[in-house]
Design a protein around this nucleic acid. Structure first.
Lengths: 252, 252
DNA sequence: TAATCCTAGTTTGTCCGACAATCGGATTAT
DNA sequence: ATAATCCGATTGTCGGACAAACTAGGATTA
C-alpha cells in the first residue's frame, strides 16, 4: 500500500529558488562548506546555477533565514551554523503561537533543569564558575529591581545549563526558558518573599555546582522549580492559561 | 561602560525586505492575522508597502522559511503556525552541524522521556492509547526488519510524548529524538538481544500508561533509556563521537 | 436543465536591465 | 610611510515583461 510512496519520490517540482537553497544546504550539511567560508557573489551564483540574480536572491533569503548563511561585515555572504540564540527565539515564538500554557512550560523545565544542574556539577570548568559567581553577585545587588532580577534569573539558569557542556540540553531548554522565566517575573513583583527565596536557591545551586555535588545540585534545582510553580499559583495566576506574548518586543 | 549599548538601540537600518517580514510577523504574533488567513497578493503587498514586487517577494521568502506563511493549494499565501515537525527538523539539523555527540543526546533524552512517560500516564486519552497499541502491534510484527523497527521505535516515543499533551515537551524532545533513535538503530542490528529488550520495555511502558501508573511508566522509561546507553557502548560505539549526518537525506 | 468545455483574467515564478549607496582595495598626494 | 582620494565590485531596490498554472464565469452541448 505504501509501496508506491516508497518507490516514487516527489520528483522535485520545487521552484528554482528553493532548489538553489537546498543545493547549498546540502553542501553545508555534507561539510563541504564550513562556517566562515565565503559564498560566491549573487552574480556569480546566478551564473553558476544558470538563474537570474533575482531568483538567486530569493534562494539566499531562505538560507539566511534558516541561519545557514549570514552577512559578514555587512556585505559578503558567509556560511554559518544556526546560533542557539536564534533557534531558541524561533522556538519560543512557535510556543507562544501555539498558546502553550505555563503548566506545559513548567513541566518541561522541571524535567530539564535538574538534569542540567547535575551535569553542570560534573562538567563545569573554572570559567563557568566565574560567570555564575558574577551573576550571583549582580543578582544580590539587583534585589530590589524586579525587571533586572528577572533578567538575571534567566541568565543564571542559562549559565548553569552552559556549564553542563551539553548543546542538545542547552538548546532544548533555551526555548522554554526564554518564555518561562519572564512569565515568572510577575511573581517576584507581587510576592515579597519570592526574591529572597530565589536568591537562596541560586546560592545553594551555585555552591553545589562548585563542590561538584551532583545530587545536591539536582535536589536544590528541583526544589527551586517547585517553588516557581507554588509562587505562580500563590499570586493567583492560572497555570493553565496561555503564556502571554510579551518579552520579545525589542529583539527580532 | 555598557551604558552606551543600553542607551542607543541599533537604529533599525534593516533592508526593506526584512522590515516587511517583521511587519507581517508582528501582526501574526499579535493575533491580528490568524492561521489560514490569506495574505494579499504580491502586487497588493507591493502597493501597500510602497515597495517593488521583487522586494516583497524576498520578504515573503523569509516568512515562508520561518513557517509563518505557506502556499495554500500551491498558489495563494496563507498565514500558518510553524509545525512541530518542521521545527524539529531544523533543530536536528542544527545539532548535527554542531557535531553533537551521542552522549549529549542521551543525557537530554534521559531527562525528557521519563517525564513524558509519567505525564502521558496522567493525561492520555483513548485515542492516544489506540495509537500506542497499534504501534506496539506493528513493532512486534517488525521484529526482524531492523530498519522498520527503528522507525517504529522513533514513532513509539513520539506517541508517548504526544499522549502527555504538552506541546513544549513534545517540541523539545522531537528534535533530539529525531537524531537519537536512528543513531541507536545500529545497535539493534548488531545486538541480538536488543530488539527483544526494546519490545519488552515498550510493552511495559504502554501498559503502565494504560493503567495510569505514573511512577511505573517513569521507572520503565528510565530503565529503557539506560538500556540504550548500555547497548550503544556494548557494540563498541563511542558515545563521545559526533552523531553522523544520516537520516535526513530525503526531507528538506 | 444540468453537465461540460472553453476562454479570459489573476497570480506566481522567472527573466532582463538599470541605478544608487556602500564597501574594499588601489592610487595618489603629502 | 601615511593619509586622502578614486574606482570597481557588490548589494539593495526598482521598473517592466512574459510564460505557466490556476480560477471563474460564460458558452456549448447532452
Amino acid at each position: 500500500m505504501s509501496d508506491a510512496k516508497a518507490l516514487f519520490q516527489p520528483l522535485e517540482p520545487a521552484p528554482a529558488y528553493k532548489r538553489l537553497c537546498q543545493a547549498i544546504e546540502t553542501k553545508i550539511m555534507a561539510g563541504r562548506l564550513k562556517p566562515g567560508d565565503l559564498l560566491p557573489t549573487e552574480t556569480a551564483l546566478a551564473e553558476a546555477f544558470a538563474l537570474n540574480r533575482s531568483t538567486v536572491r530569493e534562494g539566499i533569503r531562505l538560507l539566511e533565514q534558516s541561519g545557514l548563511a549570514e552577512r559578514i561585515a555587512g556585505r559578503r555572504l558567509a556560511v554559518a551554523h544556526p546560533s542557539t540564540k536564534a533557534l531558541g527565539q524561533r522556538l519560543s515564538q512557535a510556543l507562544v503561537l501555539h498558546d502553550v500554557t505555563f503548566r506545559e512550560l513548567w513541566q518541561t523545565i522541571a524535567a530539564l533543569e535538574p538534569a542540567a544542574a547535575a551535569y553542570a556539577a560534573k562538567a563545569r570548568n573554572e570559567s563557568d564558575l566565574e560567570a555564575i559567581r558574577q551573576n550571583l553577585k549582580e543578582s544580590e545587588a539587583a534585589r530590589g529591581d524586579t525587571r533586572r532580577l528577572s533578567a538575571l534569573d534567566v541568565s543564571f539558569h542559562e549559565l548553569v545549563a552552559k556549564a553542563a557542556h551539553n548543546r542538545a540540553l542547552l538548546l532544548a531548554r533555551e526555548a522554554v526558558g526564554q518564555l518561562f522565566y519572564p512569565a515568572f517575573a510577575v511573581v517576584v513583583t507581587r510576592l515579597d518573599t519570592a526574591a529572597e527565596r530565589l536568591l537562596t536557591a541560586h546560592r545553594a545551586i551555585a555552591e553545589a555546582i562548585e563542590r561538584q555535588d551532583e545530587e545536591e545540585a539536582r535536589r536544590w534545582m528541583v526544589r527551586h522549580i517547585d517553588d516557581f510553580h507554588r509562587g505562580y499559583c500563590m499570586v493567583g495566576l492560572d497555570p493553565d492559561a496561555p503564556i502571554d506574548r510579551m518579552g520579545e518586543n525589542s529583539s527580532g
